[in-house]
Simulated scan of single mutants.
Amino acid sequence: MRISELAERVGVATSTVRYYERIGLLSGPSRTSSGYRDYDEEDAARLLFVTRARRMGLSCDQVGTLLGIWAGTHCASAAERVGQLIDEKQAEIAERIDELHRFSAQLTTVQDALRAEPPDACRTDLTCCVPESPGVVVLDLVPRPRQ
């Protein structure tokens, strides 16, 4: 099958298939005499595995490790490792939720300070519009890159 058929079948963009090939999660397919990529059922199964693992939030490195375990035949070993990775992901999520709760409390403190002393004029230390919130680490809200 062609790349567009493979991508549609699994529900990803053709650029995703090419990317996974480039980083080694998919092996390069055979080529037709006219140079088109030619995928088979094994390629489709591997792409489906990769896609599902990525949708669970696993990094490309983690998926690569799983592929080495799974290899299309070792489901029990792969399932065990997926379970471990899910536990790790759940811990990361819990930590992130705690960070967000702390950040929410920080924002409430700042908002309360602004409401308690509405600015009548700008101040050189900018506490008129951005009050200080000592002792609280500002949370980085920039999304963390997926690996």
Rank of each mutant, 00 (worst) to 15 (best):
R81D: 13
G11M: 04
L58N: 09
L47C: 04
E42Q: 08
S27T: 13
L107N: 06
P134V: 01
R55N: 12
L48E: 12
G11F: 01
L58T: 12
E21Q: 08
P29K: 15
Y20L: 10
E42M: 05
E8F: 08
T73R: 13
R2H: 02
L126H: 04
V10D: 05
R115T: 07
S15M: 11
M1W: 06
V82D: 10
T109R: 05
Q62M: 02
V138F: 00
L126N: 06
K89T: 10
S27H: 11
Q111H: 06
L126Q: 05
L141A: 02
P143K: 05
P134S: 00
L141S: 01
C122H: 07
D40E: 15
A45V: 13
I93K: 06
E80T: 15
Y19Q: 13
S15N: 14
D61C: 14
D112A: 01
M1S: 10
L141Q: 07
L85I: 12
L47S: 09
A78D: 05
R31K: 06
A71N: 15
E42S: 05
R52T: 12
R123S: 00
T32D: 02
A44C: 12
I69P: 10
A116W: 00
E42I: 04
L114M: 05
E92H: 14
E88Y: 12
S77H: 13
A105G: 11
